[in-house]
Amino acid sequence: MNHANPWVRCAVSVLILAACASAPVWADTPPVPAGSVAIGGEIATPRRLDDIALRKLPRRAFDATEHGTTAHWEGVALSDLLSDAGVPLGDALRGKNLALYVVVSAADGYRVVYSLAELDPAMRGGDVILADRRNGQPLDANEGPFRIVAKDDKRPARWVRQVVAIDVLRASLR
């Protein structure tokens, strides 16, 4: 019977544990059903929306340019989705609530962050929507079914494709 050196077994065990501990945070997030987006985190009313539920909400539309191409985008204001979920906006966005931020996650693990103040229409004028249509058509599989579009961002780096989750989190204080 071949027995490996105990130091080798120990080193391999440490490497395996290190790899597991360094797995991306999104790896332990439960999967979201296809065609829906989960809204969660530190909110009063967690929810999951599909395209039918999204179409029933107040709509926003605007033209925005991505990589030199202008398109007409339609969807729901991210601030409306957050407000419906009980996230403090408007006059309630002050004090400790200013430490809240939003993480938007894509199906491939890509994530972006917005401060809650960036999304609050009472504090900032730009539109950020969860889009489901481009130029009058549903988003294709490469973009959708949902996509974040930030009209006033100079670069579309935070325009997340294939959005699966929107989480409201609190910056920790040391």
Score class of each variant (00 low, 15 high):
Met1Thr: 06
Asn2His: 14
His3Lys: 13
Ala4Pro: 04
Pro6Ser: 10
Pro6Glu: 07
Cys10Thr: 10
Ala11Pro: 05
Ala11Ile: 15
Val12Leu: 13
Ser13Gly: 15
Val14Arg: 10
Ile16Asp: 11
Leu17Asn: 11
Ala21Pro: 01
Ser22Gln: 14
Ala23Ile: 04
Pro24Thr: 09
Val25Gln: 14
Trp26Lys: 03
Pro31Thr: 08
Ser36Met: 07
Val37Phe: 03
Val37Glu: 09
Ile39Phe: 03
Ile39Val: 15
Ile43Arg: 12
Arg47His: 08
Leu49Tyr: 02
Asp50Asn: 13
Asp50Ile: 06
Asp50Ser: 08
Ile52Thr: 15
Leu54Met: 14
Leu54Arg: 07
Arg55Met: 02
Lys56Glu: 13
Leu57Arg: 13
Pro58Arg: 13
Arg59Tyr: 03
Arg60Val: 10
Asp63Lys: 09
His67Leu: 12
Gly68Pro: 04
Gly68Ile: 05
Thr70Glu: 11
His72Met: 08
His72Phe: 09
Trp73Gln: 00
Gly75Pro: 01
Ala77Gln: 04
Ala77Val: 10
Ser79Thr: 06
Asp80Val: 07
Leu82Met: 04
Leu82Ala: 01
Ser83Ala: 15
Asp84Arg: 05
Asp84Gln: 14
Ala85Met: 09
Gly86Ala: 07
Gly86Ile: 01
Pro88Trp: 07
Leu89Ile: 15
Ala92Asn: 13
Leu93Val: 09
Arg94Val: 15
Lys96Gln: 13
Lys96Ala: 15
Asn97Leu: 12
Leu98Trp: 02
Leu98Arg: 11
Ala99Thr: 09
Leu100Ser: 02
Leu100Met: 10
Val103Ser: 06
Val104Arg: 04
Ala106Lys: 02
Asp108Asn: 11
Asp108Leu: 03
Asp108Met: 07
Asp108Ser: 05
Gly109Pro: 06
Gly109Met: 10
Gly109Gln: 11
Val113Pro: 03
Tyr114Met: 03
Ser115Asn: 13
Glu118Pro: 05
Glu118Thr: 08
Leu119Arg: 04
Asp120Tyr: 02
Asp120Arg: 01
Asp120Lys: 03
Met123Ser: 11
Arg124His: 09
Gly125Glu: 08
Gly126Glu: 14
Val128Ile: 14
Ile129Gln: 00
Ala131Trp: 00
Arg133Gln: 11
Arg133Asn: 04
Arg134Trp: 01
Arg134Thr: 02
Arg134Ile: 06
Gly136Asn: 06
Gln137Leu: 06
Leu139Lys: 00
Asp140Leu: 06
Asn142His: 13
Asn142Gly: 14
Asn142Val: 05
Gly144Lys: 01
Arg147His: 04
Arg147Ala: 07
Ile148Asn: 00
Val149Thr: 01
Ala150Leu: 07
Ala150Arg: 00
Lys151His: 10
Asp152Glu: 12
Asp152Ala: 06
Lys154Arg: 14
Arg155Asp: 09
Arg161Ile: 11
Val163His: 00
Ile166Asp: 02
Asp167Cys: 05
Asp167Tyr: 07
Asp167Met: 08
Leu169Cys: 07
Ala171Leu: 14
Ser172Asn: 11
Leu173Glu: 11
Leu173Trp: 09
Arg174Glu: 12
